[in-house]
C-alpha cells in the first residue's frame, strides 16, 4: 500500500503532491490519523482526485469502516480510474468489517484479477473464509438484521452504506428457500410498527 501510494503521489501534480507524499510517509510509519489528514488535505486542494481513494483506504486502516465505505463510494464516483487491486482489497476489508460479505467478495474478485501475487494470495484466502460464512442458508433474523442496518444508515444519511446493506439483505434473502423478503419489503414486525 505504502509503495502504491508513494508511486501515486509521484504521479500527482503540485501542489497536492507534497500532501499525498506526506500521507504516504505517515501511512508507511503506521501514523494513520496523520496520513488521513494529509490525504484529506490533498483531496480538498483538488489537485489529485486519487486522494479520495487513499482517504477511504486509511479510514479502513483506522477501523472506521462505515466512513470508509462511504468514502470508497465517493471515490468511485469521482475517480473511477483511480482504483487499483490494493485499494479494492482495502474496500473488501471495509465491507468485511461491516459484515457486508457479498460486497467484500465482489471487491475481492475485482482485486484478484489485477493484483500481484501477495495481494492475490490474501484475496484468495479471504474469499475462502467468506465462502464458509456464506455457505449456510441465512436465517430470517439475519435478513432482518441487514434491512435494519440499512434503515439506520439511511437515517444517518449514509446513503451508499444503506444501499449496500439493502443489496446484502436482498442477496441473502434470495439464498433462502422461502425467499423471505426477496422483494425487499419490510418484515411483518416492521409493517405492524409502521405509522
Amino acid at each position: 500500500m505504502a509503495l502504491a501510494l508513494a508511486g501515486a503521489a509521484a504521479l500527482a501534480a503540485p501542489p497536492s503532491t507534497p500532501h499525498l507524499r506526506a500521507g504516504a510517509e505517515h501511512f508507511r510509519s503506521g501514523r494513520f490519523e496523520e496520513a488521513l489528514v494529509e490525504f484529506r488535505v490533498s483531496d480538498t486542494l483538488g489537485e489529485a482526485t486519487d486522494a479520495s481513494w487513499y482517504v477511504a483506504a486509511t479510514l479502513t486502516k483506522l477501523g472506521r469502516a462505515e466512513e470508509a465505505h462511504e468514502a470508497f463510494a465517493q471515490a468511485e464516483r469521482r475517480s473511477p480510474g483511480g482504483r487499483d487491486a490494493l485499494l479494492d482489497f482495502y474496500r473488501a476489508l471495509a465491507c468485511h468489517q461491516l459484515r457486508l460479505y457479498t460486497c467484500a467478495d465482489a471487491a475481492l474478485v475485482a482485486a484478484g484479477t489485477r493484483a500481484g501475487p501477495t495481494v492475490a494470495g490474501h484475496a484468495a484466502k479471504m474469499r475462502a473464509e467468506l465462502m464458509t460464512v456464506l455457505r449456510a442458508e441465512p436465517s430470517r433474523a439475519t435478513v432482518d438484521w441487514y434491512f435494519e442496518r440499512a434503515r439506520e444508515a439511511e437515517a444517518r444519511s449514509q446513503l451508499a452504506l444503506a444501499a449496500a446493506y439493502r443489496r446484502e439483505a436482498a442477496a441473502l434473502a434470495r439464498r433462502r428457500q422461502d425467499c423471505y423478503r426477496c422483494d425487499g419489503t419490510a418484515s411483518a414486525v416492521h409493517t405492524s410498527q409502521a405509522p
Partner: peptide, 29 residues
C-alpha cells in the same frame, strides 16, 4: 492560507467524526 484552510477543513471533519487526535494534528498543521 489556502493550505491552512484545507487543514482546518480536515480538522473539522475529523472532529465531527470524533477522531480528536487527528483533528488536533490537522489544526496544528
Amino acid at each position: 492560507a489556502r493550505g491552512a484552510a484545507a487543514y482546518v477543513n480536515a480538522g473539522e471533519m475529523e472532529m465531527a467524526a470524533g477522531a480528536v487526535r487527528a483533528a488536533a494534528f490537522a489544526y496544528g498543521a
